[in-house]
């Protein structure tokens, strides 16, 4: 199949411009640049001869400081706006409010959790009871355990 884009007629310019347009553009541009100061053409000698000023050395440092200040500023304002940032006195206030949470009374807990006083202490009682049971093991039981586990008689004598 023929490549339609290879037709030479397609490469012809179908657009037009007003008569004398390019002459007028040249005049307009020359008028514009005449009003502008004439810049000196670039030359390596001129660049080498250019004296180093205070700003030549400190410009990069100033730029760096400016960037740090900007980043810090953005970070600080973001924290301030979102409420993440707290001053010293606000921090103390937070600690105080946390401390006051520790002082919640039993009545408050019962009303919040909707339980009775017995429920509140029930679990703690059972723990105490089991601990007591553990302590109530008598010497004979321990002796029997040691015999069963075949410990040396010196260990049993120590118990007696």
């Amino acid at each position: 199949m023929e490549d339609i884009l290879s037709r030479s007629s397609l490469k012809e310019n179908p657009f037009g411009v007003p008569a004398g347009y390019f002459t007028s553009v040249q005049d307009e541009v020359m008028q514009k640049i005449s009003a502008m100061p004439v810049a000196q053409p670039y030359s390596e000698e001129a660049e080498e001869a250019a004296p180093a000023t205070f700003m030549t050395y400190f410009k990069p440092a100033f730029a760096l400081v400016a960037v740090f200040a900007m980043v810090f500023g953005i970070g600080w304002s973001t924290m301030k706006l979102t409420g993440t940032y707290t001053s010293g006195s606000q921090e103390n206030a937070t600690i105080l409010s946390e401390a006051s949470q520790d002082e919640i009374s039993e009545d408050d807990i019962i009303s919040i959790l909707d339980i009775t006083v017995e429920d509140l202490y029930a679990e703690g009682d059972s723990d105490t009871q089991s601990q007591t049971e553990t302590l109530e093991l008598d010497v004979e039981t321990i002796e029997q355990y040691l015999i069963d586990t075949r410990l040396p008689s010196t260990a049993i004598a120590l118990l007696e």
Partner: peptide, 19 residues
């Protein structure tokens, strides 16, 4: 037309630094 003129002005401004 606008772009051609601004291009030519830019060329004039930057010609001194053309290396």
């Amino acid at each position: 037309n606008d772009l051609l003129q601004s291009t030519l002005v830019k060329i004039w401004e930057n010609l001194p630094s053309f290396r």
